[in-house]
């Protein structure tokens, strides 16, 4: 488990860096476009490029938020349950929720394959869009991986609780 966790941290770090880099690139793209616009120099491809940059920004942000446990949830019921049951419920909910992202990743794969088949190109700039569609798939797969590891962690913790009879930190 340790090794998997360390490996996961490594991958998430790379993913998060990609997302961050794209957000910053998005900012500079707009700033440069606006500044050059003021002196009459045109960048017709700005919107195309911005839309493409959004794909890694948003999809890796989803994985990073999951890794940081930042996805909004309600702890109304779980806070009332005994710790072991609460952990079990957490694991179950996370596992079920993962199903949705698996669907997203699968749907994204179908779209990426179609894009490759059709040799989809970005308008105006003409570069291939398919790699960016794969990026979405990679990021969502990473999200699924993060969630699966969290499910396993939660399950392991219920075992710990069982063994020690109480939670070490709550």
């Amino acid at each position: 488990m340790r090794i998997i966790e360390r490996l996961l941290r490594g991958i998430v770090t790379v993913g998060a860096f990609t997302g961050v880099a794209c957000i910053i690139a998005l900012m500079f793209l707009t700033v440069v476009t606006v500044s050059f616009r003021a002196i009459g120099i045109a960048f017709p491809g700005t919107y195309t490029l911005a839309e493409i940059l959004l794909i890694p920004s948003i999809s890796f942000s989803l994985a990073y938020a999951a890794y940081e446990g930042a996805h909004t949830r309600v702890e109304l019921v779980t806070s009332l349950l005994p710790p072991r049951l609460a952990r079990l419920l957490d694991a179950l909910m996370l596992a079920l929720g993962t199903v949705f992202w698996v669907v997203v990743a699968y749907a994204g794969t179908l779209e990426a394959l179609k894009s490759a088949r059709n040799q989809e190109q970005a308008p105006i700039l003409g570069f291939p869009v398919t790699p960016f569609r794969w990026m979405l798939v990679i990021a969502i797969s990473l999200l699924c991986l993060v969630l699966v590891v969290q499910v396993v962690q939660a399950l392991l913790r219920t075992r710990q609780i069982e063994e020690t009879g109480e939670e070490s930190q709550s």
């Binding site: 045109a42 017709p44 700005t46 919107y47 195309t48 308008p123 105006i124």
Partner: peptide, 19 residues
């Protein structure tokens, strides 16, 4: 629209594909 940006550029205008 993207289709007209090239023609606009021929006459020194900037086509913007804004939403």
């Amino acid at each position: 629209a993207n289709d007209y940006i090239g023609a606009l550029a021929e006459f020194g205008a900037e086509g913007v594909a804004m939403p």
